[in-house]
């Protein structure tokens, strides 16, 4: 029988008001245990107020080969950024 445990990715919210951020991964038997180990492994120094764990196998990720078709077409749309628009002198709160 295999004794290999499953891989989980761990996300920590460091303060109220902030996003959960990926901090690393760990091995566990089930999501509940992964959550407890996440507490023991990744919040030993009060790094968090909330934890998420996700089975690594459940994450769908974009591939490097997707880069050209995913991201490049977005590079030529400067009109989405405020910096493209000039403002007259003296106007700084727009």
């Amino acid at each position: 029988m295999s004794d290999e445990l499953k891989l989980y990715e761990v996300f920590v919210r460091s303060r109220r008001g902030l996003d959960h951020k990926h901090v690393g991964s760990l091995h566990a038997d089930d999501p509940e245990q992964a959550l407890e180990y996440a507490r023991d492994v990744y919040t030993r120094r009060s790094e968090g107020v909330s934890l998420w764990v996700v089975a690594a196998g459940d994450i769908t990720a974009s591939q490097e080969s997707d880069c050209d078709s995913f991201y490049d077409p977005l590079d030529d749309k400067p009109y989405r950024h405020a910096a493209m628009y000039d403002l007259p002198e003296g106007i700084d709160s727009l």
Partner: peptide, 15 residues
């Protein structure tokens, strides 16, 4: 630790 890790896997499967 082998028997412990096996127990975990087995319990998870049963559940």
């Amino acid at each position: 630790g082998v028997w412990v890790r096996e127990a975990m896997a087995c319990y998870d499967k049963k559940r």
